[in-house]
């Protein structure tokens, strides 16, 4: 079995995540869609790594990516909490008022 089907799945994930990201105004929802995109990207990375000459390097990068992604979840959620505390809402269209 080649890696092509995996890449197809990753492309689908990317597309779905993109749709969610563009069509939502809720901060958390956007974040979740971005995470779907991240999953697609991760899968593409690993598939390509598996097909390339040096799989361990790809795997290492993937591990680091997952760790950073988990950290990013923490940061993004903190922002969401702050936003919720200050505005009682998580609508991104109101986010511009945070400027300055």
């Amino acid at each position: 079995m080649t890696v092509l089907p995996y890449l197809a799945v990753s492309a689908c994930l990317f597309g779905i995540g993109l749709y969610g990201l563009l069509s939502s105004r809720n901060f958390i929802k956007m974040l979740l869609s971005a995470e779907v995109i991240f999953n697609g990207g991760l899968l593409a990375l690993l598939s390509l790594a598996a097909a390339s000459g040096a799989p361990p390097t790809g795997g290492t990068i993937a591990i680091l990516a997952i760790a950073i992604a988990a950290a990013e979840v923490g940061v993004a959620v903190s922002i969401a909490i702050l936003m919720f505390m200050l505005k009682g809402d998580v609508d991104v269209y109101k986010l511009e008022k945070f400027k300055g």
């Binding site: 890449l7 492309a11 597309g15 598939s47 598996a50």
Partner: peptide, 23 residues
């Protein structure tokens, strides 16, 4: 968004077509 998503998916699929190899 739907348009963008479909386009992106198609583009990616096209790009990935050339990849060969086994895990």
């Amino acid at each position: 968004a739907l348009d963008a998503a479909v386009l992106a998916t198609a583009g990616l699929l096209y790009a990935f077509q050339s990849v060969t190899g086994t895990p």
